[in-house]
C-alpha cells in the first residue's frame, strides 16, 4: 500500500539521537556515507553495520519501522545487485548458457548491496530522528557560507521542509484519487506498459491540480503570517551545541579512525 512508504518521515521519540544538534546529524550522516566508500573488506562492513545497529538502538526508533523504508527502494537495490553480478568480468565461478557469474562480480554485488542498504538505513535514520524544521535549520546553518555566493540557502531549506510536510498529504490524496477513478471503472493493473502509463493520466492530472491549489493556498497563508524570506527572521529553536554534541563528534572521529584502520586487515 502506498501509505507504507515511511522514508523521510519523522518518528517522534525521546532519545539522545533525537536531541542531537541537526548539524551534527547531517555531518554524521555524510561522514558515514563517505566512510562506507572507504571500506575495503568484510571487516569494514561488519564494523559499519554494527555501528549503525548501535545508533539505531540508541534512537529508539523500532527496527522494523526503519526496514519498512527499504521497501520503496528494493527495486533499485535488486537492479544494482543484478547489474554487478552479471556484468562484472573476472574469474568465473558459475556458467550456464549466456549467464556468467564471476568471483569479482559476486563480491562487487555483495558490497554494493551492503553499501546501499547501510546508506539508505543510515540516511533514513537521520530523517526519522530529526524534524524537517530542524533539518532545514541545520542545512541552512551548514550551508550559510554559500550565501556569500548568492545561493538562496534559506529558500532552498524552506522548500525542502515544505516538501517533506506535504509528502504524507499527497500520498493520501493519491490513494483517494486512485480509488475514485477505480470506482469509475479505471483499471491500473492490467495491460502493457503503454496502457498502464495511459491509465496514470486520470490520477496524475488531478494530483497536479491539487498540488498547485495547495501551493497557492499555502503561499497565501504564509504571506498572511508575515513570511518575507529569511531576512529579519528569528528562530524559535535556535541551534546551540551541547555537551552531547561534542560526544557525538568524538564518536564520529573514532568511527572514521576504526574504518580507516580496518582497511589494513
Amino acid at each position: 500500500m502506498i501509505r507504507d512508504i515511511t522514508i523521510g518521515q519523522y518518528y517522534p521519540a525521546d532519545s539522545v539521537l533525537h536531541r542531537l544538534d541537526p548539524r551534527v546529524k547531517l555531518t554524521g550522516t555524510l561522514v558515514y556515507i563517505v566512510s562506507l566508500f572507504l571500506v575495503k573488506n568484510l571487516w569494514g562492513y561488519l564494523i559499519a553495520a554494527l555501528a549503525l545497529a548501535a545508533v539505531i538502538r540508541a534512537s529508539k526508533v523500532p527496527f522494523g519501522y526503519i526496514v519498512k523504508g527499504l521497501k520503496a527502494v528494493v527495486i533499485l537495490l535488486l537492479f544494482t545487485v543484478c547489474f554487478n553480478l552479471f556484468l562484472t568480468s573476472g574469474t568465473p565461478v558459475f556458467e550456464w548458457k549466456f549467464i556468467r557469474i564471476t568471483k569479482e562480480g559476486l563480491y562487487l554485488a555483495f558490497s554494493m548491496a551492503v553499501r546501499l542498504t547501510l546508506l539508505i538505513l543510515g540516511s533514513s535514520l537521520m530523517t526519522f530522528t530529526t524534524t524537517p524544521n530542524e533539518l532545514t535549520d541545520g542545512m541552512e546553518s551548514l550551508l550559510s557560507p554559500l550565501k556569500k555566493l548568492h545561493v538562496p540557502v534559506h529558500e532552498v531549506a524552506m522548500m525542502m521542509s515544505i516538501a517533506l510536510r506535504f509528502i504524507p498529504i499527497l500520498l493520501e490524496e493519491t490513494d483517494k484519487i486512485m480509488k475514485a477513478q477505480q470506482a469509475r471503472g479505471a483499471d491500473f493493473e492490467s495491460g502493457g506498459i503503454i496502457k498502464r502509463a495511459k491509465a496514470m493520466i486520470p490520477i496524475l492530472i488531478p494530483l497536479f491540480i491539487s498540488a498547485f491549489r495547495r501551493a497557492g493556498d499555502l503561499a497565501m497563508a504564509m504571506e498572511a503570517r508575515c513570511y518575507r524570506g529569511g531576512a529579519g527572521r528569528t528562530k524559535m529553536k535556535p541551534l546551540h551545541y551541547h555537551g552531547r554534541d561534542a560526544g557525538a563528534w568524538i564518536t564520529m572521529a573514532m568511527f572514521v579512525a576504526v574504518i580507516v584502520v580496518s582497511r589494513r586487515f
Binding site: 519523522y10 524534524t131 524537517p132 524544521n133 521542509s161 515544505i162 517533506l164 510536510r165 498529504i169 491549489r213 495547495r214 493556498d217 499555502l218 497565501m220 497563508a221 504564509m222 498572511a224 503570517r225 508575515c226 513570511y227 518575507r228 529579519g232 527572521r233 528569528t234 528562530k235 524559535m236 529553536k237 535556535p238
Partner: peptide, 29 residues
C-alpha cells in the same frame, strides 16, 4: 485563518507551526 486546515499549517510539529508567525516578525526566542 483560511478554509483548508491542511493548506495553512507549515511545520510538522504543532508548536513549531505556532512559532512560525512570531519568527517572521523577528520576535526574540
Amino acid at each position: 485563518v483560511f478554509q483548508n486546515p491542511d493548506n495553512q499549517i507549515i511545520a510538522t510539529v504543532v508548536e513549531e507551526d505556532v512559532g512560525f508567525g512570531p519568527e517572521n516578525l523577528g520576535v526574540p526566542t
